[in-house]
Design a protein around this nucleic acid. Structure first.
Length: 499
RNA sequence: GGCGCUAUCGUCUAGGGGUUAGGACGGAAGAUUCUCAAUCUUCAAACCCGGGUUCGAUUCCCGGUAGCGCUACCA
């Protein structure tokens, strides 16, 4: 690395102050779960250390970047609750910085003009690959004298700018999760810094921006490991203090291949649409590839996550996305939510499902949500599984009818029971409704169980529900009676539907 | 192919030169009998393979194997 100023000693100077980290997505797609976790780790790190979390949009690939995707990413970040302290910065608005940085590199002899055409390079690469040789750029234009390069450019010939990678020696970095990683310099290609149209490539823009924004810790996916030596060289060539690199393992699908659309939803917004709550998603994502000291972790809120999070808990190996576990986190978080917090979230689901809660009394809604939430796996359940609690317009689950309402006698008894509830002078509390049913069962000389289970289906349309009498008390006399009396019709419809 | 990274129950992980290798999700069984997607109890389930170092390796070292990543004028 002769000729490069040593900057390793300056590592500490950047890392010692309050950390500055960034999430730098490319707007060529939505915010996917891998990116979301990278963002979350950066956010947790910044919050834990009272540092700064910066959002930077890497949109230098104008062909593939779109403003819809920018909006989609911001939306995803907001939904996930990852608030940023600076930005969003857009690289397309910072072009001057990159050109200046490239000029510095050319001036110091660390970069040079390359006149090779794309087609030429493509052909050579194909040939090299066919021969089993390395497809690395051979550095042909490195030998072009400065004056000649200037002349050719003046004559209108287009040129890219390449970085002149040292031909010997090696480059290393001490990764905060992986430890020391070293690459032989001759394995590293003379990467393009500036395209022939003057636009920067990723390698130039990240380094220029990370320097300019004084990023102290670069926490990103491990798919960037092989890019790192190039960036380290750039820091050295520029004589800038080195940040700390922390490469986070990737998230894989259940088949151990990189997570993609094939595995189902990858966009974080799709999880919102599935009724996942952000608290659960953060908890789940944080524990994918990271574990707090001691390793045992379950339901954690943001305060605990922030308190516990640090780089040394990040695992080195890839993690598989486990949907069942996400669902578990989600049900636990929903259960921990107050009904007041749940209500507006649930109202969104009702709206989507065309439910206008017939019983609009807010207090009643809150109590019902509390009654039902221990059995919820996601927010949508409040509009599907629990639909009957909030509207009279619901259909029975055929499986539940099959299980508990198949017996004609039971159905008749339920209708009759409905009449009893209608005629009763008693109140409609849990205790009173329970007493009436048991008395009724005794009178008819039948067990209460089948009646209770049948009534559950008649009242809720489901085979799974809270305690029946709590449900009755919640629904009130009028609804309980009319639903019991409609047991026959409901069962008939469900059994028809089944065929 | 080349280069790099990784390897503990099915999954996420803790641990660490001598342990009954711990926890959580999921799974199974049981209890509750008013259902279960709720609750409680119990159970099954792992150190990739081969060498080396060592009194002793799952742990440290080397090799293999496998998986993943990168290998663009994408990011």
């Amino acid at each position: 690395m002769a000729g490069f100023p040593s900057t390793q000693s300056e590592v500490t100077s950047l890392a010692e102050a309050a950390p500055r980290v960034r999430f730098a997505p490319s707007p060529t797609g939505y915010l996917h779960v891998g990116g979301a976790r990278t963002a979350l780790f950066n956010w947790l790190f910044a919050r834990h250390h009272h540092g700064t979390f910066i959002l930077r949009i890497e949109d230098t690939d104008i062909e593939r970047s779109t403003s819809e995707m920018v909006e989609g990413i911001l939306q995803g970040m907001r939904w996930l609750g990852l608030d940023w302290d600076e930005g969003p910065y857009f690289q397309t608005q910072r072009m001057d910085l990159y050109r200046q940085t490239a000029a510095r590199l050319i001036a110091s002899g660390h970069a040079y003009y390359c006149f090779c055409t794309k087609e030429e390079l493509e052909r050579k690469r194909a040939a090299a690959l066919a021969d089993g040789r390395s497809a690395k750029y051979e550095g042909i234009c490195r030998g072009v004298p400065r004056e000649e390069a200037a002349r050719r450019r003046a004559a209108g010939e287009s040129a890219a700018v390449r970085f002149a990678v040292p031909e010997t020696g090696s480059t290393y970095f001490d990764d905060a999760v992986l430890g020391r990683v070293e690459f032989a310099n001759n394995e590293v290609e003379d990467v393009v810094l500036l395209r022939s149209d003057g636009a920067p490539t990723y390698h130039l823009s990240v380094v220029a921006d990370d320097i300019d924004m004084r990023i102290s810790h670069i926490i990103r996916g491990s798919d960037h490991i092989s890019n790192t030596p190039k960036q380290v060289m750039l820091y050295e060539a520029l004589g800038e203090p080195m940040p700390v690199f922390a490469h986070v393992p990737l998230i894989l699908g259940p088949d151990k291949t990189r997570l993609s659309k094939r595995h189902g939803a990858t966009s974080v917004m799709a999880y919102r649409d599935q009724g996942i709550v952000p608290e659960a998603f953060r908890n789940f994502l944080a524990l994918l590839g990271w574990a707090p000291p001691g390793g045992t972790a379950g339901i954690l809120g943001d305060a605990e996550l922030i308190r516990l999070f640090d780089l040394d808990g990040i695992s080195k190996s890839n993690a598989i996305f486990d949907r069942a576990k996400l669902d578990w986190f989600n049900s636990e978080h929903i259960r921990a939510f107050s009904a007041e917090k749940l209500l507006p979230l649930v109202e969104v689901e009702w709206k989507k499902a065309g439910i206008e809660p017939d019983l609009m009394d807010r207090d009643w809604l809150l109590r019902t949500i509390d009654l039902v939430k221990p059995r919820a796996r996601n927010l949508r359940d409040f509009a599907t599984l629990f639909r009957a609690y909030f509207t009279d317009s619901f259909e029975a689950d055929p499986a539940a009818v099959e299980k508990f309402l198949k017996d004609e006698n039971v159905r008749q008894m339920l209708v009759e029971l409905g009449g009893r509830y209608a005629a009763s002078e008693d109140g409609f509390s849990e205790q009173e409704t329970e007493k009436l049913l048991y008395d009724f069962a005794a009178e008819k000389e039948m067990k209460a169980g089948p009646l209770i289970n049948g009534a559950r289906v008649a009242l809720t349309g489901q085979g799974v529900a809270p305690s029946l009498f709590a449900v009755m008390a919640m629904l009130g006399r009028e609804r309980t009676v009319s639903r019991l009396k409609a047991a026959q019709e409901m069962a008939a419809r469900a059994m028809n539907q089944e065929v």
